[in-house]
């Protein structure tokens, strides 16, 4: 635990704008720590999404680019192809990745772009006021599902890890959570592994983090953690969905 709250070199001294108990800040620290531990900070370009993390650049001591809603994987593709030496951290929320940018993430994964996607699933559109997201649980009340998400009208939650794991190219896909110390440690390990794989040129990786949004869930931070443990993990089972190198059958020797 102690380690998690030590200020890593990758973060500056500014106080984060996230609500108390928000998961974004926790994952930011893990990202900064991992980059520092792997000695990758100086090569990193952080891509912030549209969502509560849009201002992530206020905090990171790295180069930074802000992408349009859902388009971070495309900007990541361009950056990485232009300069393969860069380490690309594509950071996205669930509205951003699983709704506005569904096409972009699926195809970046299918192409096996050598980037790291950190995907914060808080089951709502945090920034715009807690509206229903594609990841909102059935029955979950949000400002645009005031009677609870009704699958007859709004369908069922989209499971990104499971979906992306059906494509062959990704190197590493894992879903973790922030609800317990053990899961925090697992998340940190997964984030670091993702960067390490990228640095070794192994290919696309995505870490989905079940993350609390106490403000829009209308819960205290401890209640929010409990809700993840009781409700979210049931819908979104934790675990590794892919951890292998897909050997391409086609060699590029036309």
């Amino acid at each position: 635990m102690e380690k998690i709250f030590k200020k890593p070199k990758g973060l500056n001294d500014k106080t984060m704008h996230y609500c108390p108990g928000c998961g974004h800040g926790i994952v930011h620290k893990m990202i900064a720590q991992s980059l520092e531990e792997l000695n990758l900070l100086e090569r990193t370009i952080f891509i912030s999404p549209v969502g509560c993390a849009v201002f992530a650049y206020w905090y990171f001591n790295t180069d930074h680019i802000q992408a349009a809603h859902g388009r971070a994987p495309s900007a990541a593709t361009g950056l990485k192809r232009a300069n393969p030496e860069l380490i690309i951290v594509s950071y996205q929320g669930d509205g951003d990745l699983a709704s506005a940018g569904t096409a972009e993430i699926v195809h970046a994964a299918a192409r096996g772009e050598n980037i790291s996607v950190i995907f914060i699933n808080n089951a709502v559109y945090g920034m715009t006021g807690g509206q229903m997201a594609p990841t909102t649980l059935v029955g979950q009340k949000t400002s645009t599902s005031p009677f609870g998400r009704d699958p007859h009208f709004a369908g069922h939650p989209l499971k990104v890890c499971e979906m992306l794991a059906t494509t062959k190219a990704p190197r590493y896909i894992e879903r973790t959570s922030l609800d317990s110390i053990a899961n925090l440690n697992r998340t940190k390990k997964a984030v670091k592994k993702s960067f390490d794989l990228q640095a070794k040129g192994e290919g696309f990786s995505l870490v989905e983090v079940l993350s609390p949004c106490p403000t829009n869930w209308g819960m205290s931070p401890p209640e929010a953690m409990d809700w993840i443990a009781d409700k979210m993990i049931k819908e979104y089972p934790l675990g590794v969905f892919r951890d292998e190198r897909a050997d391409s059958e086609v060699k590029n020797d036309l």
Partner: peptide
């Protein structure tokens, strides 16, 4: 040469590549 999944994606790939200083 990257064939993007949509033009929406293509222009954002250009955004990324050009941000790295490349002509795209």
């Amino acid at each position: 040469y990257i064939q993007a999944e949509t033009e929406v994606s293509a222009i954002n790939m250009v955004y990324g590549a050009a941000s790295a200083g490349a002509r795209a």
